[in-house]
Design a protein around this nucleic acid. Sequence first.
DNA 1: AAGAGTCTTGGACGCTTGACCTGGAAGACG
DNA 2: CGTCTTCCAGGTCAAGCGTCCAAGACTCTT
Lengths: 196, 196
Amino acid sequence: MARVAADVRRAELVQAAIRVATREGLAATTTRRIAQELGISVGIVHYCFRSKEELLHEVIRVITEAQIVAAREAIVPGADLASSVRNAFLGFWQLVEATPEAQLLTYELTSWALRNAETEPLAREQRASQLAGIVEILAEVSSATGARWSLPTEQLARMTLAITDGVTLGWLVDRDTKSAVQALEAFADQLLASAL
Amino acid sequence: MARVAADVRRAELVQAAIRVATREGLAATTTRRIAQELGISVGIVHYCFRSKEELLHEVIRVITEAQIVAAREAIVPGADLASSVRNAFLGFWQLVEATPEAQLLTYELTSWALRNAETEPLAREQRASQLAGIVEILAEVSSATGARWSLPTEQLARMTLAITDGVTLGWLVDRDTKSAVQALEAFADQLLASAL
DNA sequence: AAGAGTCTTGGACGCTTGACCTGGAAGACG
DNA sequence: CGTCTTCCAGGTCAAGCGTCCAAGACTCTT
């Protein structure tokens, strides 16, 4: 196999782990399976990471960061309030529909992280940055359209995240796209009603 | 050990599995751990169930049924619309706060069920009965107070389930009770606004 | 009392898992 | 050119997993 610097290998292993976990589930994501995904030997996993757990920590960090970037890029300047909010929800929804297994993976990772005390902060951190991203979007929408929110953006962000998480989770189970979009639009309307 | 009829043992094993999975997570719920919980030998698990998977199927069914029963009992007759809706949300929230690990378990079970094709219908079925329970509650609230919903109850039920799931999931991570209740109340108000 | 049927035990099975280790190859550097 | 760090392959290890089985113990019927 090609000789690769350790920190590059680390990144490769993280991406391989994400691919495997997305495709086959977190439970099936073993060190051997990850190594096989890269066509390298299992030993490298423990050469680059102290443990499998450390690798999964890194997986959560990388996914969280990717989500923040995606959220920032979703902000489209120069539209009125209603369009901005609707576009934000629709843009989010396109991501969900395009990568359902990836969404499921984030729930699996969250569940896993919540189950032992030392990884719990990672889940907390991920949620915090999700909320921060939404707050930022809400602020940009507000400043771009000149409108103001009647509730604190932190609270609106929590509500928005609850909605997107809840709708996504439900859709992952019943795959009823029409109803999911309908629900998102209804929530978007209610969100708009809380703008002054 | 006490000699117990096979169908009684089945029920005991299901309850033991639920206790272990609630307390220690689905990944830690092994056949040995379940048997240990009852103080019996491992062989009994496969005397009563064809496989561990069949046991987990039963676990999902039992939990789903318990949730429906709990939802029906949450309906308190003889109150006005606003109180009914608020009480429903608050009643739900008390359950979440009292049994956080149990809520986490349902997410773990859903993730697990979604990951292979043959158990997927179980997740679907669970969601369907959750929705049916909420539809029923909405209908009873409506008939008890004489008010009507401006949207189809199926759609309102989906939105309600999305909200409760999303808020719960978020609270499991950050444990910010005040914000969670605040969000639920805001959603309850919006729900009330869609009543005629 | 004897037998049949039902439940239980404890261990064994084959397999997978995360972790680790040793020996050697590839490249950097003097 | 030789040395020395960095990276890789393959195998080994103990632990734990789901599953299965033979044999015993209990209970009920006859």
